[in-house]
Design a protein around this nucleic acid. Sequence first.
DNA 1: ATAATAATAGTAACAATTATCATTATTGAT
DNA 2: ATCAATAATGATAATTGTTACTATTATTAT
Lengths: 126, 126
Amino acid sequence: MAVTKHSKQRDAIIDELCQRHDHPTAEELYLALKMKMPNLSLGTVYRNLNMLSDDGTIQKISVGGADHFDGNAGNHYHMLCSECKRLYDVAYPVLEDIEKNAVNFVDGKITSHMITFIGVCNGCLH
Amino acid sequence: MAVTKHSKQRDAIIDELCQRHDHPTAEELYLALKMKMPNLSLGTVYRNLNMLSDDGTIQKISVGGADHFDGNAGNHYHMLCSECKRLYDVAYPVLEDIEKNAVNFVDGKITSHMITFIGVCNGCLH
DNA sequence: ATAATAATAGTAACAATTATCATTATTGAT
DNA sequence: ATCAATAATGATAATTGTTACTATTATTAT
């Protein structure tokens, strides 16, 4: 089901997600928002995050364990720290041709691509 | 815990996984193997798949929903069909320099990278 | 053959997510 | 502004995917 009406809760979810630069899970977002909206429901957070990522307003990222969400819907890449499991943005220039080039290696059509680097973040190295 | 002894079950799991070119989930693998080993346990399949992917013998791939497993541990790329959620190999040449180049955009060290194309496979297009 | 111990089957527990449903909020038309 | 239609919510139950537990079985080194 697509987004039609809007609500205080949805606005707050989008707001919080766009303000932060980490890539919170639904529960992390819920806990942060619950402080300002004490009777916010976890189901509402999940429902909205799903609708918004279906819309293409935000991104859902699956890397094992709980899904992460990213308020930046534009194509960009990520790094997953294998120690702390945090997800970081990687400002590597988007490979503009990769989808076009990949067509030769795929039986079907390509709509997008994701690149995830796996490594260890500075916080976990020190 | 690392793999030390070996077992009929583990051999069958590796065998089945390497024989197929799809990227089955633990449960898909379990159902296939159960026909030949009727008292195989789902927990055994999970335990072995985890030990083997920790080892680097196989790959675990998270793209939302149940994890997929790949008997080919060498670096290569995948495509996820957004319709049927099946995962395909993509024989796109590995970008040998991308990790080295990405260092400038990351606070930490990089150990590997993954590329996943999202699209619609031929089976779902027709 | 035996002892040590890793691996198993079966099941319970757990974590993440989705579904349900009665109530509340938002919207567009009057 | 009021009202009807309906989308969204909160609370909770249900489901799905995965891990943990434990008694038993299989594998391995001696």
